[in-house]
Design a protein around this nucleic acid. Structure first.
Lengths: 198, 198
DNA sequence: GCCATTCTATAACTTCTGCTACAGAAAGGT
DNA sequence: ACCTTTCTGTAGCAGAAGTTATAGAATGGC
């Protein structure tokens, strides 16, 4: 083990990353300015760059942290439930809680970069990739439902996965627009009708 | 009628506004830089400012034009159809066409400003207001459906209106993420299940 | 022809962006 | 004690953002 050389860092990097995540969550990638980021850590730019490399690298780390912590709960709920329907309901209810747990609300993976300058296309691509993984997890759960006979054999997995991901996007967007918990939860029942037999 | 005094404008203001709308549509409010806007008209900044006042004023005009032209078609289709179900289907299909009719896709009212700097909060508020009007139009159509007996008397109008607006948001987001026409249209049938009787 | 009026282009301004050169401070190695 | 290594704050970089002062060009009115 190489012992720590040089002057030790004056702040907790893990805690700092958590705060960076909060700032990116609240303001989006481009809306989060270096001022906001460094102020949230209580540190000057050189320390920020020494610890995280660049704004984009910090964003990627923040995204990974978000996926591992905040975003993981709804997807775990999806898998843990006994039935597909209960799993999707739990996932969507979890998404509502996530969307309300920060101001101004919504999912970082969905809202973090929507429009961006060409310079920041890489950050957008990183989020797009994360969203695709979300859809894949929903598809996996649906596939399990077909395998164990809960859903009919001819079920269009991709279509339903995209649909329920669409409901998550709607929850995020409406939370960002100031919807209440009751309003967001009210989106779930109509959506679950998509599982009804023909 | 006061006759035109002074040097006449060297470009067609209406055509220019249409091009500004296209740029805002493609890049969003903050993503559309003055460079892009003036280049799209073929004009230098002072002419832009003489004609439109400011970037934000131009955006508001572009939004109004979008609502009156592009955005009006789905809402007209909603009203023109014989039944609520057919109207909602036509509205959503129209939204798909709108979302695919420009690159990189999606609705200007939904995606034009998502994250923004505090300075640009007014532009965001302008779009938020336009979205509320969309929801109100859907609610009106649902109310007509209750009035003529097509929907049950106890129907939760606000809930369903928010839900179908959520589907429009999902269409916009997924179009922006590169979904095909078939994928976007596949969101509609599951959504219309929300109208099924209990 | 000359005036007032209005549009246009050149060129710049102010402000802010992400980022960094520099010098000093705080630690371990020897 | 001294060197190396690494973090820290001050101060400022180059570039781009939206916007505008200025001077010139093009029209109608008289």
């Amino acid at each position: 083990m190489a012992t720590a050389r040089g002057r030790p860092r004056g702040f907790d990097r893990d805690l700092a990353l958590e705060r960076l995540m909060q700032v990116f969550w609240a303001k989006g990638y481009e809306g989060a300015q270096l001022n906001d980021l460094t102020a949230a850590i209580g540190v000057k730019p050189p320390s920020f760059y020494a610890a995280f490399g660049s704004k984009e690298a910090a964003f990627r780390e923040a995204i990974d942290l978000y996926i591992a912590t905040i975003g993981a709960a709804p997807m775990r709920a999806l898998d843990a439930a006994a039935t597909v329907r209960a799993g999707l309901r739990a996932m969507l209810e979890g998404s509502v809680e996530v969307a309300l747990s920060a101001k101004p609300g919504g999912c970082l993976l969905i809202l973090g970069v929507v429009n961006c300058l060409p310079v920041n296309e890489a950050a957008r691509a990183h989020l797009l990739n994360a969203r695709r993984k979300t859809v894949a997890l929903v598809a996996d759960r649906l596939r399990r439902g077909v395998a164990n006979g809960e859903l009919p054999a001819g079920t269009d997995i991709a279509r339903l996965a995209a649909f329920f991901h669409g409901i998550m996007q709607a929850i995020s967007f409406q939370a960002r627009d100031g919807a209440t918990r009751a309003e967001l939860l009210a989106l779930i029942d109509p959506a679950l009708r998509a599982l009804d037999p023909d």
